[in-house]
């Protein structure tokens, strides 16, 4: 009997921990077509910070900000997934605002590769991204 109680308690604790973790980390999806080696770093840009001819789009992303603690935290999660899928940078193209309360609820954009010609420039000058 005590073992069953122990198992039950373990499941409850695991469930609480999992739901806390779920609340702490935003829901993000990164969709990349093709096979690109994972990168060590991925930079963040707003659409107006980088010219669309300066990167090659390889996929899209979407982040649900309702589960995120902050905008930057959501983008960090996107960056992590994007660089694992081989992207050099993410570019935020659309911010979805809830008309009822004016709150930012989602972010959409593209994940991209940076050509050699501007990679060094980006690394030196635009690296700040959204920070």
């Amino acid at each position: 009997m005590s073992r069953i109680l122990y198992l039950l308690m373990s499941f409850i604790v695991a469930g609480i921990v999992a739901s806390c973790g779920r609340a702490a980390y935003p829901l993000v999806s990164v969709d990349v077509a093709g096979l690109y080696p994972e990168k060590n770093v991925a930079y963040k840009f707003l659409d107006n910070q980088i010219d669309s001819t300066d990167y090659w789009v390889i996929g899209t992303f979407e982040a649900d900000l309702e589960a995120a603690r902050s905008f930057n935290m959501a983008l960090d999660a996107v960056c992590y997934k994007a660089r694992k899928r081989g992207a050099d940078c993410i570019v935020v193209r659309e911010k979805v605002v809830d008309p009822a309360n004016g709150k930012l609820v989602a972010v959409r954009g593209v994940v991209a590769l940076l050509p050699d010609s501007i990679h060094e420039v980006v690394r030196r000058n635009i690296q700040m991204g959204l920070e």
């Binding site: 093709g34 690109y36 080696p37 994972e38 990168k39 060590n40 770093v41 090659w56 789009v57 390889i58 081989g86 050099d88 991209a112 590769l113 940076l114 050509p115 050699d116 990679h119 060094e120 690394r123």
Partner: peptide
């Protein structure tokens, strides 16, 4: 012509390891 879907293998690697 180099693009996201047509690249030499070396250019696909992380910039630090090209």
């Amino acid at each position: 012509e180099q693009s996201a879907i047509c690249m030499p293998y070396a250019s696909l690697l992380p910039y630090e390891e090209r």
